[in-house]
Nucleic acid binder design. Structure first.
Lengths: 203, 203, 203, 203
DNA sequence: TATGAATGAGGATTCATTCAT
DNA sequence: CATGAATGAATCCTCATTCAT
């Protein structure tokens, strides 16, 4: 018997659930958000959700994976447009700066941060986090820095790995404060300041 | 007739509960940690906990208040030892750098971060967060920067409020990543890098 | 897609829960009866009970509503068989007299009485009580009395509202004493005596 | 060693507790009223309450006993002022009629009714109820009726016990409805109507 | 696959009662 | 005797997950 529905149908349904789950998790937090919240928000029945994901936690993990992967892939692709290291760094700051005022992004930051906390308490997930920091985040910055050093754009003697860690810590720290304080936090100015500071330190 | 127990006794008991709650909340997260966990960990009976706090959330809030207030007060007091703005900033970075490897501090960071998320979803608590950011955090840095400008140590034209925001976002961002990744994260080096970067940008 | 279960199924389930709750409430009282008592008695799971009623109190209120409404409706319908006012009054006394020895009815009286106490302490429920006294109880008697006055059967000059109040107070008072003292209370004789007394006073 | 405090002191303290408990029980119901409510209302410490009564239920029982005994004794004494049976009955109705608007009395009725329910569920207390109905209540009315029959005032052929039961059922029924509906219930008129009806039936 | 009713373990909170001071 | 802190059993309710239709 052939599959009753296409793989593509299943993939779309999964995405749909994930999208609604993100909003629910952002609104109430992972623990406080219930499957019923997702049901209400997505209008997909509880039974259906459980045919696509075997637990609430699995939705959470899938959510994080897909967001990270897709956003990083897009970022890397866009970076190819620039061939100057400083411009690349500058571009990444600008990408985050542009997120100002976007609810979806604030939601993502909240869920992302909470997932970090969650994952840091589970050995398996923690490893995933560590791997991902390496694969998706640090390597991007390290590559740019090393490239910049070759061309002489960057003269900083600092350890590229440390710089990469600091880079993402700043992005996360600023984004997190913004997602919590919202309009009370001068997000764009702070990102701009961070950009100047970080780039100055590289030169 | 004298009171059955002194105010001081009660204050100590409250602190004791808070201390144990911090560990439990850090270990499992606020939602996942149960009152029974605190009972087991503290060996204080459930009923007793509820005579000192009227809900789990109240413990959480008290925990945050006391940690913030006492640590900030200590910090401010110690800052008076330095009369140079750059030295003051440098000292604060050093204070955080010294926390490396201290489990208690990593616990505090996790609980602190989670509380931020929690509070950002509750109008009343969110206001508390905003007020506290102003009163306890930003003002400290703004004062130092303005002092430094007067003495000519600091020449940066940037908005002191924005700088203060960035400062704490970096501290939080770095601390958070560290608390999640632990020994995988080169905390001391990152803090050192951040210190140099931030101070360079002020001059 | 058709609903998984019919409305009728749900209505029956609700009734079932209510029926078991009545017995539990009668046996121990509303407060003392636990949800687990209802679970044990009905063999319906706790979760299920909570999908039909959102709290123990809601079961209580539903219980009172359905009992009152259905029993009054039946009573009114049966009254149409008589076209003589005195016979109607006599019939109502007889209906209550017939309840002698029926455990279900004694249960209902107890729960009913306790609900009165409960409701008298809650502004919203108290209003419901007042409205119901008017709509379901007093009006029935007042209508009969006024009808009887027109036909000349009833010559009493007393206020029909006061007579209606007295009528129900007697029914309740007698029923309540009976439900508490059971076989120690000569219920049928007392109801009979009350009937004669009340009817004599109307003529 | 002689007793530290006099019996009279103890008796007064007990009464005091009982008086406050009555109000608390009336306000919230026996189960819902907590010992802490009584503590707050009476300003007597929890420990103290437990030196005078060994449980919450004991307060309840003591409350009922003292109220019943003292009020009945007073009633019987006052009845001696009348030497006519009808006047005596009339007087009792008047005593209850006079209670209109007295909060204390409405409180007593509520607590009394709830105690009935409570006691009817406990074999020991139920017996106490049955005995008391006989000793304190029915006998009073039966005596009057039998006296009235002797003097020829009363000609009713009805069983005096049944009449006595009906008498108290009416008093209770009317009182209870009044205590629940308060100003919505025309208490005085209903009592007056009941009095006329009952007396008419005796003659 | 889709649905939503059923399940019951789990968790926050309450409160009568005890007992050290 | 008086006090009120300590105790933990008891209870309501939630919610992730399962499964019959």
């Amino acid at each position: 018997m052939p599959p009753v529905v296409s793989d593509e149908y299943r993939a779309r349904k999964r995405s749909e659930i994930i999208e609604h789950a993100l909003i629910c998790f952002a609104e109430k937090g992972f623990q406080a958000a219930t499957i019923d919240d997702i049901v209400k928000h997505s209008k997909i029945s509880k039974g259906s959700i459980y045919t696509y994901f075997k637990s609430k936690e699995e939705i959470y993990i899938a959510l994080m994976n897909e967001k990270t992967v897709s956003s990083t892939e897009r970022l890397i692709e866009e970076l190819t447009k620039y061939d100057n290291a400083i411009e690349k760094i500058s571009f990444i700051f600008d990408v985050y700066k542009m997120q100002a005022g976007r609810g979806t992004w604030m939601d993502t930051v909240k869920v992302h941060t909470e997932f970090y906390l969650h994952a840091s308490r589970d050995p398996e997930l923690r490893q995933l986090l560590i791997d991902r920091a390496e694969t998706y985040y640090n390597s991007v910055i390290i590559n740019i820095i090393e490239e910049g050093k070759k061309t002489g754009e960057i003269t900083s003697k600092s350890n590229p790995d440390v710089l990469a860690r600091l880079f993402w810590s700043i992005i996360n720290g600023v984004g997190f404060q913004y997602s919590a304080l919202e309009e009370q936090y001068p997000y764009e100015e702070v990102i701009e300041e961070a950009k100047e500071m970080f780039i100055a330190s590289l030169k």
